[in-house]
Amino acid sequence: MNLQTELAGRPWALHRETFESLIRSTNAAGPGIKLPAQPSRKRVEGGVAIIEIAGPITPRASILSMLFGGTDLQTIQYELDSALADSSVKKIMLNIDSPGGAVAGISEMGDRIYASRSVKPIEAFVSGMGASAAYWLAAATSRIVVSDTAMVGSIGVVGTVVDDRVRQGMEGIIFHEIVSSTAPKKRPDPSTQEGRAVLQDGIDSLASVFTAKVATYRGVSENKVISDFGQGGVLIGIAAVRAGMADRIGTFESVVGSPGAVPVPAVAATGQPQAALSVEDSCAAQWRNDPKIRAEFSSLESFTAYTRAAHAGHARITTGRVVSGR
């Protein structure tokens, strides 16, 4: 019996058994049938790089993910790096509709997204579902926008142990496992209290990492994540916003058309946040690096003033002119 760990919400569009089988099979396949990352699905609209995260999330591309659909972390990483290096891209958007996926690689990918927020604004839009592993990635962005019917959350880890000893016995098959005497916890038996406790500790340890990362990304306490962020369930639309799991209700078009959240600095290797990046510093960096901004605004001061007003919701574009007020 092997414990398979998953970060999976309730896959409404895919039978639970099919989803779990896909994740387990992809994990078990390992590098033996590993395929190159799938061709990039990133597209750029109006200076916004859109990275699609749809279906089950797996560590790498595989034959199974190609057959059943889904997104692999290799492709997400490639598209993120490409968008960060593209000077025409001013903002990055994760377009998410996923029930979650495998544990492997998700924490590292989340940290990569979080660190990249100091380079360019990164936002997430959840249209249908942003659950578990998918919410982990969404939480790492600068801002989460959800549709009014979107389901987000499912913060937790699921462990599945397949015990087919009864079937084996009926078929006359007997497996004898000999575990080294110095590793008594290598094959814990979930049918015993001791074995189940060992497995539960492992699941809880993974879940604590999930909780801590979401708390860091969203700038809240771990206690708030545990008590208010659905307790393993999903919250829908405005309820997710009120709980602090998302930032606002919106549409795909509203995220593409918005100026984007001001980039924030990455977390230092010590785990402590670096000094906050001021609006003035962010605007100065954009002013230096983007000739289009210098051409559009008469001075750095006017660009900074517009940025402040835009983020406060007190500026809009009308017939080519920046208008303050509502």
Rank of each mutant, 00 (worst) to 15 (best):
Met245Glu: 02
Trp287Ile: 07
Ser132Gln: 05
Leu94Gly: 03
Asp201Asn: 13
Gly325Tyr: 11
Asn95Phe: 12
Met170Cys: 07
Pro291Ala: 15
Ala305Trp: 11
Gly156Asp: 09
Gly313Glu: 06
Ser154Gln: 07
Glu253His: 01
Val255Asp: 00
Gly320Ile: 11
Arg10Phe: 13
Lys292Gly: 06
Leu84Thr: 07
Ile96Gln: 06
Leu277Asp: 05
Gly195Val: 09
Trp136His: 14
Leu73Met: 14
Phe229Thr: 01
Asp97Ser: 15
Leu84Val: 04
Val267His: 10
Val255Met: 01
Asp247Arg: 02
Ala37Gln: 02
Thr71Asn: 08
Arg294Trp: 10
Ser227Lys: 15
Ser25Asp: 09
Glu222Lys: 13
Gly69Tyr: 08
Ala115Trp: 06
Gly55Asn: 08
Trp136Ile: 14
Thr319Asn: 15
Ala269Arg: 09
Ser282Arg: 01
Gly169Gln: 14
Glu177Leu: 12
Pro259Met: 10
Ala13Met: 11
Gly169Lys: 12
Val161Asp: 04
Pro184Thr: 13
Arg288Tyr: 04
Ile226Lys: 13
Asp201Trp: 08
Asp201Tyr: 12
Ala61Met: 06
Glu123Phe: 03
Val214Met: 05
Phe125His: 00
Thr5Ala: 12
Ser116Gln: 03
Tyr306His: 04
Ala102Cys: 15
Val119Gln: 15
Phe229Ser: 07
Arg321Ser: 12
Ser21Asn: 14
Ile51Ser: 09
Pro184His: 09
Val179Gln: 12
Pro265Thr: 09
Ala133Gly: 13
Lys224Pro: 04
Ser21Arg: 14
Ser127Tyr: 14
Leu7Lys: 02
Glu52His: 12
Arg60Val: 01
Lys292Cys: 01
Asn223Arg: 13
Leu80Trp: 06
Ala49Ser: 06
Val89Leu: 05
Arg248Gln: 14
Gly202Cys: 02
Ile63Val: 15
Thr18Phe: 09
Leu80Cys: 06
Leu137Met: 14
Ser62Lys: 03
Val158Pro: 00
Lys292Asn: 11
Ile53Asn: 03
Ile53Ala: 02
Leu64Gln: 12
Arg294Asn: 06
Val241Leu: 12
Thr149Trp: 06
Ile122Tyr: 01
Ala268Ile: 00
Asp281Met: 10
Glu177Arg: 15
Ile63Arg: 03
Ile23Trp: 00
Ala8Lys: 04
Glu296Tyr: 14
Val225Leu: 01
Trp136Cys: 10
Ile144Ser: 09
Ser302Phe: 08
Val322Ser: 14
Val89Pro: 01
Ser40Arg: 03
Gly219Thr: 05
Ala266Asn: 08
Ala102Val: 15
Val209Lys: 04
Ile155Cys: 00
Arg316Tyr: 10
Ser205Gly: 08
Ala138Pro: 13
Val256Gln: 04
Val179Met: 11
Pro291Asn: 03
Arg41Lys: 11
Val255Lys: 00
Pro99Gly: 00
Val198Asp: 00
Lys120Gly: 02
Ser132His: 02
Ser181Tyr: 02
Glu222Ile: 14
Asn2Cys: 04
Ala269Gly: 02
Ala140Trp: 11
Asp86Asn: 10
Arg24Ser: 10
Ala305Val: 12
Val89Met: 04
Gln200Ile: 07
Met151Gly: 04
Ile33Cys: 05
Tyr217Gly: 07
Arg288Lys: 15
Glu171His: 13
Asn223Ala: 15
Leu137Arg: 05
Thr307Asn: 00
Lys91Ile: 05
Ala295Thr: 07
